[in-house]
């Protein structure tokens, strides 16, 4: 990427700098705290967990006891330890699905936008319309029926649900950018289509692409967690927050923490992602109105 200009960082900066759009925004600050907390749990939770997440240590559904502040789940396993190790699947699968969403969505959007008002554009966008006309959870259920409930199917499902939105946004932005002088100059220089899309158009439409990254990421987390909750995704004994909530509904009367702990973890994760995304959108709004 020849046009990407790396901003030189000061050589003696001791701590990583927080981007302005977070530092200057109350919602962004809260979101960052939530997300850092959850990422920390996902990365290091399994190492600080007091017990093994998969070994029963006492009476199923028992409330808080010594060494087990959040009590035990429906099989007698330590809720705290399971909650601490349940973040990886939510974060990793959500992130993978988001990456896949953007890979497909950006590529199709660029192609359709650059070829605006041609057959390629028309066919791509009509296909996208069809994918959008089915409720998200139905798409997930059809794919699970067809392919079974593995991690890859969850990632694929979330990407299939979410790529049309990205394609639409990228197509609109790319079609607009494609009429600019510098793109026409590149066409006149005889540059290849791939090079034009990558070097001339893509860098100039990054803002609208990043703007709803947060929304898509939180949506993939929600979709995957929902399918896990329905018992159609990851299978036990996986410690996944969505799966934990559904497993432990039977012990709500004796130990509500068994569902409250994973639920709160999901709440923090989703709100954190959304708050950061909103802060970025507000930042874009401010800088464009200046």
């Amino acid at each position: 990427m020849s046009t990407a200009v790396a901003t030189p960082s000061p050589p003696h900066s001791r701590r990583p700098r927080i981007p302005a759009f977070i530092a200057a925004d109350r919602g962004g600050q809260v979101g960052l705290v939530f997300l850092v907390l959850i990422v920390f749990v996902a990365l290091f939770g399994p190492f600080i967990a007091p017990h093994s997440p998969n070994v029963p240590i006492g009476i199923p559904g028992q409330g808080s006891i010594g060494g087990s502040p959040l009590g035990l789940d429906q099989l007698g396993r330590d809720v705290l330890s399971r909650a601490l190790s349940g973040g990886r699947t939510a974060l990793a699968l959500g992130a993978l699905a988001t990456v896949a969403t953007y890979l497909v969505g950006v590529m199709l959007g660029l192609l359709a936008g650059y070829a605006r008002n041609t057959a390629l554009d028309g066919i791509t966008m009509r296909t996208v319309d069809i994918f959008i006309s089915l409720p998200a959870i139905l798409v997930m259920l059809v794919l699970v029926t067809a392919l079974g409930g593995s991690s890859w199917v969850l990632v694929l499902g979330a990407a299939v649900v979410l790529f049309p939105g990205v394609t639409r946004i990228v197509r609109t932005a790319a079609a607009e950018t494609a009429t600019r002088g510098y793109v026409e100059a590149a066409v006149a220089r005889g540059e290849k289509r791939g090079a034009i899309l990558r070097r001339e158009i893509l860098p100039n439409i990054m803002a609208p692409i990043i703007a709803d990254l947060g929304v898509r990421f939180s949506w993939s987390i929600i979709l995957i967690a929902s399918v896990n909750f329905l018992g159609l995704g990851l299978s036990p004994p996986a410690s996944d927050w969505g799966l934990m909530i559904s497993e432990n509904r039977s012990v709500i009367p004796t130990n509500p923490w068994a569902v409250v702990a994973p639920a709160l973890a999901l709440v923090l994760l989703i709100l954190g992602v959304n708050l950061l995304g909103d802060a970025y959108v507000r930042h874009l709004g401010r800088s464009s109105s200046r």
Binding site: S218, I222, A225, S226, F229, G242, I245, S246, R249, I252, P253, P256, V259, V260, A263, L266, V267, I270, L271, N274
Partner: peptide
Amino acid sequence: LVFAALPEFVTATLLIVVFFGWLGALPP
């Protein structure tokens, strides 16, 4: 906005904890 951002099953489960687990008022 907070509730709109959350998955339905999380909201539903938290409602069950409050109205069934704590208050015992409604069936789970």
